[in-house]
Amino acid sequence: MAHDTFRPASPWLLPLALAAAMTAAGRLDLLAAYTLAGNRFQGALLVMLPVGAFLSSLPGRLRRHGRPRLRSTWQGCAVCFAGGVFLMLAAGLAEMGDGLALTGLAQGNVSAWAFAAIVWAAALCAARLKARWRRHA
């Protein structure tokens, strides 16, 4: 894979972001941000999220002289669009998204812990099923 040499780092950035979100607004609610519910804090957070990701990816882009490490495909775009629709529908059903789950984990909500455990179990099964399907396809 092209990203085999990538090493995940900086585990202290996420705690800072969560602490800032919990201090300013009490929670990190991307569900409310996507529904454009009028919450300014969550809306500004959603807008600046890709900017922060781009700034963090700049050193790697400069090292590669602007060549992208990974490329988008139309199948990937279709999968991402469909996945996004179902993700928001599932988050709406659970009344919890990934942002609320993270802040709920940090403050000790039982529902957040149960949601995270169920999500991880389902993701584990789905990822392994997909890997097996890819191997046999």
């Binding site: 995940p8 780092a9 900086s10 950035l13 996420l14 800072l16 972001a17 800032a20 979100a21 300013a24 990190l28 804090f41 500004a44 957070l45 959603l46 807008v47 600046m48 999220l49 890709p50 900017v51 922060g52 990701a53 781009f54 700034l55 963090s56 990816s57």
Partner: peptide, 11 residues
């Protein structure tokens, strides 16, 4: 917060 969160997700 979004800036820091985006950097965290990318890193």
């Amino acid at each position: 917060t979004g800036l820091v969160l985006g950097m965290a997700v990318q890193r």
